[in-house]
Amino acid sequence: MIPWLDHRHQFPPLSQALTEPNGLLAAGGDLAPGRILAAYRQGIFPWFMPGEPILWWSPDPRMVLYPAQLHIHRSLAKTLRNKSYRVTFDTEFAQVMSLCAAPRGEQPGTWISADMLAAYIALHEAGFAHSIECWMDDELVGGLYGMAIGKMFYGESMFAKRADASKIAFVHAVQWLQAQGFGLIDCQMYTDHLARFGALEIDLAEFMRQLQQLTAQFDVLGPWSYHYESRGSG
């Protein structure tokens, strides 16, 4: 059995997380901004499907990307040099998140419910949640969103309507985060896609050691559109 959260923004110790499914720590509670921020500061994130209770996770090992170790493969580097796109930050957060939630292929939808959308829009308005947008021919064709606390960035989801669009947004995001002194990007769980960018797995104890140092630093609150000038052409 996993603990059921009450009205307090308190979570059980990470040592109590299940190994199967990997990282399941608690259920219940709500998606209030204070609770979500408290969760991220402790290496915990919400993830659940529509119809399920809110589930809270902290998997071990943890997939991360050190911004300085970003790997860009040759074909993507060529696309980036062509600059047939434009990248912006924090200009269409709600739309990016909605497109991340849209059905993909044979999948009817994703875990991004209306409640999750409302919760992260509130966090965006508070300056903690951010979106990176890729535009082609004045159309929003790719992007991603995530959370920033201190100098720690937590990636959540991405979408692409054209080839490489989400990858373009991701590369610009990582390079900008590195320039701003962000030390780590939480990618949560292993995927081959992220591994090709240089992401790797580290054990949870090491992840938490770095997270605690990075989240204690000064917040780069949004909207990041004030800090980031549009890149590319379009």
Rank of each mutant, 00 (worst) to 15 (best):
S15K: 15
A68S: 15
L177T: 06
F170C: 02
M116S: 01
D164S: 10
R162W: 15
Q42F: 03
R86N: 11
L123G: 08
L24S: 08
M1D: 15
G142C: 11
I149A: 00
Q95L: 04
M116P: 01
P67W: 02
H71F: 13
Q107P: 01
M147D: 08
L5F: 07
L25C: 05
L18V: 00
A179R: 08
A38S: 06
L80R: 14
I132A: 03
R62H: 05
H130Q: 07
D203Y: 06
L5P: 09
L184V: 07
G34R: 09
H73L: 14
N22H: 14
P13G: 11
G28L: 01
D60Y: 13
P13C: 12
I36N: 07
C187G: 07
M97Y: 02
F207A: 01
P223N: 04
A68P: 07
I149L: 12
V96K: 01
D192G: 06
I132T: 03
W56A: 08
Y228W: 14
M49L: 12
T191K: 05
L70P: 10
A68W: 11
A205R: 10
H130D: 09
D186P: 09
W135T: 05
A94G: 02
I149D: 00
Q69F: 08
E206W: 00
Q188V: 08
R196M: 07
P53T: 09
G150T: 03
G198T: 10
Q180K: 12
A27N: 06
L144D: 06
G43I: 05
A163T: 14
A77L: 12
L70N: 13
R41G: 09
L140V: 03
S58Y: 15
P103C: 04
I121V: 09
I2F: 00
E139Q: 13
V174I: 15
Y154N: 07
M136I: 06
A102D: 09
S225D: 10
L80M: 14
G155P: 11
A173W: 09
S233P: 02
R8Y: 06
I202Q: 08
I54K: 05
L123W: 03
H124E: 03
E156K: 06
R196L: 06
P103F: 10
V64C: 03
I168F: 13
W111R: 01
E133I: 07
G127I: 13
M116G: 01
I168T: 15
L184M: 13
A94R: 03
E206D: 04
F93T: 00
G23A: 15
Q175G: 12
L37S: 00
W57S: 10
I36H: 06
R41D: 02
G234W: 12
S225E: 02
P61Y: 10
G150V: 01
E206C: 09
N22K: 13
T191P: 05
K161Q: 15
I132M: 11
T215N: 09
A114C: 00
P223C: 04
A169K: 14
S131K: 10
